[in-house]
Amino acid sequence: MLDLLATSPNPTGASAPFWDACDRGELLFPKCGRCGHLFYYPRRHCPLCGDTALGWQRMSGRGTVFSHSHVHVAFQGGAWSGQLPYTVVLVDLAEGPRMLSRLIGDDASTVRGGDAVSVVFPRIGDRRYPFFQRAAAG
């Protein structure tokens, strides 16, 4: 398996807990303390009711594929040539919100919409990233 590449995020004060949790192997999404809305991606306010009293909910990390694409062009530059083709996925998490991620593993190339996936946290450089892999059958 080739070494994975990832472009580092540049977290804000509001999003740093998300990325810090990934480094611990946890997927945390923000949740509104007022209306209970669970959402992605992290912001300083609830996009449903506007409240700023937010907490974090640990996600199961399980979900299904809403859509996917196998990428054959190194849009992020020549260093990505060795990653090709790689698979980008939109994952509908079991708790509701959808997130964009990358699907890794030898069976990524045969993924289909609706397939079950689960989060993994590979270390790339000085961070761990919330990528997904196909859930074991059965």
Partner: peptide, 11 residues
Amino acid sequence: EEWEEPFGLHG
């Protein structure tokens, strides 16, 4: 960018 580039989405 923060929620796309790390996952290989660009453009």
